[in-house]
Nucleic acid binder design. Sequence first.
DNA 1: CGGTTCATTGAACAGGCTCAACCTCAGTGG
DNA 2: CCACTGAGGTTGAGCCTGTTCAATGAACCG
Lengths: 263, 263
Amino acid sequence: MVAGVLRLVVPATRSMLDGCRSCHARSLSLCGSVPEGRLGEIADIVETMRARPHQRIIVEGDEARHAYNIVSGAAKLLKELPDGRQQIVGFLLTGDFFGLPVDGVHPCSVEAIAETRLCRFRLDQLDVVLGRISALAAALRSRLAGDLAAAQEQMLSLGQKSALERLAGFLLQIGAQADQLGLPTDPMRLPMTRADIADYLGLTLETISRSLGKLKERGLITVLGRHDIAFRSVAGLTDLAQGDEASPGFAMEGDQGCRSAGS
Amino acid sequence: MVAGVLRLVVPATRSMLDGCRSCHARSLSLCGSVPEGRLGEIADIVETMRARPHQRIIVEGDEARHAYNIVSGAAKLLKELPDGRQQIVGFLLTGDFFGLPVDGVHPCSVEAIAETRLCRFRLDQLDVVLGRISALAAALRSRLAGDLAAAQEQMLSLGQKSALERLAGFLLQIGAQADQLGLPTDPMRLPMTRADIADYLGLTLETISRSLGKLKERGLITVLGRHDIAFRSVAGLTDLAQGDEASPGFAMEGDQGCRSAGS
DNA sequence: CGGTTCATTGAACAGGCTCAACCTCAGTGG
DNA sequence: CCACTGAGGTTGAGCCTGTTCAATGAACCG
């Protein structure tokens, strides 16, 4: 389980930066916000690397030397308790940025859940670069604000919602991400296991399994395979996720349940 | 319950900026990180104002025009569900900054819980100022990273910890804040109600009350009054908060709670 | 004081957890 | 081609933590 040393591929090259620039995915990649003529200024603080599934890219509490941007693949952000309980605080996909330190230390661990390519930035010079390229600083700032808002949304789920509500919200969230990344959404793919979903939603994997069954019964989704799910009623899921349980009754025929479009 | 219009006091003045600078409290106030000679550059985007208890300073979903810094008082950050459930995602004290928009909109509401003085920044010019004063941008960045880490820590609590563990962690957190602000910590003051604590920890107020009783029984704290609590064993609380139930002192009794950890 | 808000305590209920058995499927090798 | 294997997933029964509902008590403010 302890991750080995990360496999470093190459120091910064022009093609690598291009690779980094190309991940415009969710909002925009950080490198993507650097003005054309100034890519040179960040070249010397960037490198690319790879991580295999289950490999730890960051260990909570370690002194922070790099921040990262995911070029392709997927990873999970997590925090652990000494007795083994763990909370996944976020899933990271193509284009996502992570690794900013707090008091010089990484506040949570990051573990790859698939073969992953990354772009990493030396932190000792990041502030200098950000001071020079204010567009990059602004992009990073708006990402941090977005991540914070996502974390707050997740707190609402964890603190107030039922298992079914949390799962419905989670599926919609994954669907929206897939959409933004241009991945298939008709049958969409969940790259993580039931246990990962459970650790993200603060539930057990048994509850995830049972809840997926309930969503299926209600006609809101179709479970195609372990990692493939299709939406049957996005409106129904949305209502459920927001607690508008109103009249979800397993949709008696005429009843469409989801009248109120919500807040 | 619906908040009235906020009472605006004065446009930016030199003394007000000084007031703002003086809140070095938690880490440092944002204005405090502006170099001496450049305060003038931010004067025209700053104003001070006040809010009364229960007054909404920000309503979730509203178009964002200002960000804020608390000069004195206290407020809560919260998110609501259409059926009335609410999650408090943070408490804001002297020196805290909030109100950065996500997609031009405020991602959560903010409500004063005491008489509060604020310093507010016009967002339409904030990016420009931040681009010019990189020290200010860096200070803001490190705050956002800190807030994000705090949110992740809270997710760990909400998703994995028991009521007692959450409450122990909460009390330590409040104690640490009081310490940083130079407020009394021997008997420390909780500015919020039981219901607020409950909404923050994802529990009910009855559970808070019962759990405080249990902490008292275990000899970890003393409850002096509604809003005043004294620590009797910080180490014991820390262990409890981290799930190191190990040697909680006497414990034995009927308490075996949840030994088995592993998922 | 009396009224209102906040807090404590009790009893019954329930959602999700625990423990355990069983199923499914992909990969492997005979 | 099929049996074996092991990780991941589903299903069931009983239990426990925290909720709900309700009554009582304590504090604050006119």
